[in-house]
């Protein structure tokens, strides 16, 4: 499958008809999804015949891209039943098999924990360079233990080769830290690699936290994420947000 062909297939994916602001439902474009899936497969071999999960799958753009690239087993997790219904329609269109589960990926204390950390990072003085990494070494494994941080997904721990996701960016005040909470869960689900999009402004922080969770993060590309005017609080017609495409590699 050529990149151009993949992108043109993905144009057929139906997206949110009525996006919900509380879930930060910005659809992933066909252009972006095609590039992520194409790179994941051609550069790293992370999709074909692999078990792949999409956290906050929404209408399934990324997972469908992974499916077209030959994923052997596909799971999509999302909180919103309207999005899941659209995803299901898309799967029929593309004749792909994917398991959908309605679940709050970041339920309970996890989100509070990450929100508190994020506020501390933004409000307080900068941490000295070596400190977070040291915290890491001792508590990494426990930090991403799903039975503790994401009880509904406990039995999915390390069940997937690859997690591919476009998490909420946590820009809505009530969603602070949600991007990091998603990443933490993703690292608990994956054996090999996690692909994720995060605002470029948080790059250093993400690198540190990922290391603390036992993953080596690499920014594969910086992209401009076109957020069209879908919600009333957007003053301009379209806003470009600087976003990093990350690949996190997990050791054994």
């Amino acid at each position: 499958m050529k990149l151009k062909a993949l992108e043109s297939h993905l144009q057929e994916v139906e997206v949110f008809s009525d996006p919900k602001v509380q879930f930060e439902q910005y659809p992933t474009s066909a252009h972006l999804a095609a590039r992520i899936a194409y790179m994941a497969e051609t550069t790293y071999g992370d999709l074909t015949d692999k078990a792949v999960a999409d956290l906050g799958c929404g209408c399934g753009m990324l997972s469908i891209a992974a499916g077209i690239m030959g994923a052997g087993l596909l799971y999509g997790f999302d909180i919103d039943d309207d999005a899941l219904e659209i995803a299901q329609g898309n799967l029929e269109t593309f004749e792909l098999e994917m398991e959908l589960v309605r679940v709050n990926v970041v339920a309970g204390r996890l989100l509070e924990e990450e929100a508190a950390r994020t506020e501390k990072k933004e409000g307080g003085p900068r941490q000295a360079g070596g400190k977070p990494a040291n915290v890491a070494a001792s508590s990494a494994a426990q930090d991403i233990a799903l039975d503790r941080i994401a009880p509904p997904l406990a039995r999915f721990a390390k069940q997937f080769d690859t997690v591919i996701m476009n998490p909420p960016f946590g820009t809505k005040p009530g969603n602070r830290g949600i991007d990091m909470a998603f990443l933490r869960v993703a690292l608990g689900l994956a054996r090999t690699a996690v692909y994720s999009l995060h605002k470029s402004s948080t790059r250093d922080y993400i690198l540190q936290r990922a290391a603390a969770w036992g993953a080596k993060g690499t920014v594969l590309a910086q992209l401009r994420f076109d957020v069209p005017q879908m919600y009333k609080f957007h003053k301009r017609a379209s806003v470009d947000v600087e976003v990093d495409l990350w690949r996190f590699e997990l050791g054994d």
């Binding site: 039943d81 219904e85 299901q88 959908l100 589960v101 309605r102 679940v103 709050n104 339920a107």
Partner: peptide
């Protein structure tokens, strides 16, 4: 429902 389990609490 329609093949999708609802695990929300």
């Amino acid at each position: 429902k329609d093949g999708i389990p609802n695990m929300l609490l």
